[in-house]
Amino acid sequence: MIGMQKKICMLGAFSVGKTSLVSQYVNSIFSEKYTTTIGVKIDKKQITMDEHVLSMILWDVYGEDNHQTVMPSYLRGMAGFILVADPTRPSTLDTTLSLRKMVSETVGDVPFVLALNKVDIKDQWNFEALETLNALKTASAGSFETSAKTDTGVDDLFNCLACAVLPGLPAP
């Protein structure tokens, strides 16, 4: 088995459910208050894929509607990222687009997956900019409808990104 570790960033507008997705996926040892203290909280998930034991070091970066508050240095060295949008608030899709642009300018092109969160209240989804959504879906390594509340699509989301950041692995 080959031990590998990769830095993964969770990015998205304020209150789209990034921390909830991470909490659903891992057992945190750090309090959520760290996110608001210095703007990031670190978690870890270890998964086995083929001959790899991958440690995903998850950087849950504090998100605000104004993406400029994300510290670029928190993004350095990441192997991939998860873009989280809340379709009940259309503006969060614009934020994901801006964040993706910011990532490209800061660390270059790295793989990402798109999480359309809060699928448990899908009847309240309200996406107007379908073009933006489709562009993001196309550029991503995969897009998933997720819900931390009902544990829908969470494992698939992270596993897809794990395949994308590990060289030579086919997408699931």
């Binding site: 570790q5 830095k7 040892i29 750090f30 760290y34 210095i38 703007g39 990031v40 670190i42 978690d43 870890k44 440690s55 070091i57 950087w59 510290m71 240095s73 928190y74 350095r76």
Partner: peptide, 13 residues
């Protein structure tokens, strides 16, 4: 792994 990450984050901060 996580402690390293947090130390790094603090440094970045």
């Amino acid at each position: 792994d996580m402690v390293s990450g947090m130390l790094s984050a603090i440094q970045s901060f």
